[in-house]
Simulated scan of single mutants.
Amino acid sequence: MTPEMFRELLQRVTPHIDKDHRHGMPIQPGMKLAMTLRYMASEDSYRFMACNFRVPHNTISLFIPEVCQAIIAEYQHEVFKFPQTADEWREVAEEFGRRWNFHHACGVIDGKQ
């Protein structure tokens, strides 16, 4: 990810993830975003990331879902567009078959173990 792309993403999700500063020193939105992107891009566990970033694993487990929800909320109307008609779904399936040679499917689900 380029620094410019990170800054844009940070600017857009910060209002969703910036916390009340009355309860001690909160983790800054930039650190939350960086750790979330690292988690999504790697096979690292919360405990491994806790050692690398010096943030408790239980704290990481609380803000990663929050940051993911913020990204979805901010980009859902721009990026997430689903077919509305049968013809649009058929077009998606045909493109998926051409591109990945996996016919009669509209997509796949990939998850973290």
Rank of each mutant, 00 (worst) to 15 (best):
L9C: 06
L10I: 01
L10T: 00
Q11L: 08
R12G: 04
V13T: 02
V13Y: 08
H16R: 12
I17N: 09
I17Q: 06
D18Y: 08
D20M: 00
H21P: 15
H21V: 09
R22C: 03
M25N: 12
P26S: 11
Q28C: 04
P29F: 00
P29M: 07
G30E: 07
M31I: 06
M31W: 00
M31R: 05
K32H: 02
L33R: 11
M35S: 05
T36V: 04
L37V: 07
R38Y: 02
R38C: 06
R38I: 00
Y39D: 09
M40C: 13
M40A: 05
A41H: 07
A41R: 04
E43Y: 08
D44G: 04
D44H: 02
Y46F: 03
Y46P: 09
Y46C: 11
Y46D: 09
Y46W: 01
F48I: 01
A50S: 14
C51S: 13
F53Y: 07
F53V: 01
R54F: 01
V55R: 11
P56C: 03
H57Y: 05
N58H: 09
T59F: 02
S61L: 04
S61W: 07
L62F: 03
F63S: 08
F63E: 07
F63H: 10
F63T: 05
I64D: 03
P65V: 01
P65M: 02
P65H: 03
P65C: 01
V67D: 09
C68R: 10
Q69V: 01
I71D: 10
A73M: 07
Y75A: 04
E78H: 05
E78F: 00
F80Y: 12
F80S: 10
K81S: 14
F82P: 08
T85E: 05
T85W: 05
T85P: 11
A86N: 14
W89H: 12
R90I: 08
R90C: 08
A93Y: 10
A93R: 15
A93N: 14
A93Q: 15
E94Q: 14
E95W: 04
F96T: 11
F96R: 12
G97V: 04
R99H: 14
R99T: 15
W100E: 15
W100K: 14
F102T: 13
F102Q: 15
H103A: 09
H104Y: 12
A105G: 14
A105P: 12
A105S: 12
C106W: 03
